[in-house]
């Protein structure tokens, strides 16, 4: 048995895939069984199903409703981010009002419908930041070529330079983490999400060396990924125990504290 560090574990990156279940309630209940086995305390969910890479407003509202429904019975453990599409800026702003300002969600997820370097994204960032919401931007650097509208860590660096006071999360660290880490290194408002890639040894060690442990967030990308392979990146890293505690939960908790407090959510 692996000794699981005596740390609070907050998982930044969870979906409702990988388990059976006709309803979102059935699915989250099953996922919590696995979370219990791995001592994961808190989980952040975003996007419903089936997945849509360029959802129209009706579709992202429907998916956010799934997330809101899932949280209903798990308010003590689960949080949710609103899935938005920056191709529909006005409707995305309205969705922030509906789900974050007037609803239970505490951040936003931007996926692959528009590159985040585009200035049209700025209004969404500003409004989320006003509400102290957490901002998660998917990024990848595929050697075989990204989707045309898929953001890279360099795109996020451009966004970060336009919003130097807003905390941003570089989802997947660009997948190709050796490049992703260096691409966002000089933007202290950017943290990396380490989930959703293979558990390649050396990833977290390099991130701690180049960014500092305070800018690294554990997340899994379940259910397509396992908790195991993603937790292993932290458990197995040759870094101090204190750094592991930060990465596994403390950093995300710190990042989410302002909005959780403002919404009166217990944590």
């Amino acid at each position: 048995m692996i000794r699981i560090p005596n740390a609070e574990i907050w998982d930044l990156h969870c979906h409702f895939s990988g388990v059976e279940g006709k309803t979102v309630d059935e699915r989250i209940a099953q996922l919590m069984v696995y979370a219990d086995r791995m001592n994961v305390d808190r989980l952040v969910f975003f996007m419903g199903w089936p997945w849509s890479t360029n959802p129209d407003p009706d579709e992202f509202r429907r998916q956010n409703d799934q997330v809101i429904q899932a949280l209903t019975h798990w308010q003590d453990r689960a949080f949710g981010f609103a899935y938005l599409n920056p191709m529909y800026v006005e409707e995305s702003l309205a969705e922030i009002d509906r789900c974050i300002a007037n609803g239970p969600l505490v951040g936003i997820k931007l996926w692959v419908s528009r590159r985040c370097r585009d200035e049209e994204v700025d209004e969404i960032i500003n409004k989320t930041a006003e509400l102290k919401g957490v901002i998660y931007q998917h990024t990848w650097l595929k050697v075989s070529g990204n989707r045309e509208t898929e953001s890279t860590p360099e795109d996020l660096a451009k966004l970060a330079s336009r919003h130097p006071g807003v905390p941003l999360i570089c989802g997947h660290t660009g997948g190709d983490w050796e490049r992703g880490i260096r691409a966002i290194q000089n933007h202290p408002n950017v943290s990396i999400g380490i989930g959703g890639s293979d558990p390649t040894a050396g990833f977290v060690e390099m991130a701690v060396r180049e960014l500092g442990a305070e800018r690294i967030l554990y997340g899994s990308d379940i259910g397509g990924r396992s908790f195991s392979s993603q937790l292993a990146k932290v458990f197995g890293a040759e870094i101090p125990e204190a750094a592991k505690h930060l990465i596994l939960g403390q950093n995300l908790k710190t990042m989410m504290t302002p909005i959780l407090k403002s919404k009166g959510i217990q944590f």
């Binding site: 048995m1 692996i2 086995r37 390649t200 040894a201 396992s226 890293a237």
Partner: peptide
């Protein structure tokens, strides 16, 4: 697949499954 992967990955998979 150690040392390319963190050894803990495979070990934890055996804990994640019942």
């Amino acid at each position: 697949y150690f040392p390319f992967f963190y050894l803990e990955s495979a070990l934890l998979k055996m804990q994640e499954s019942e």
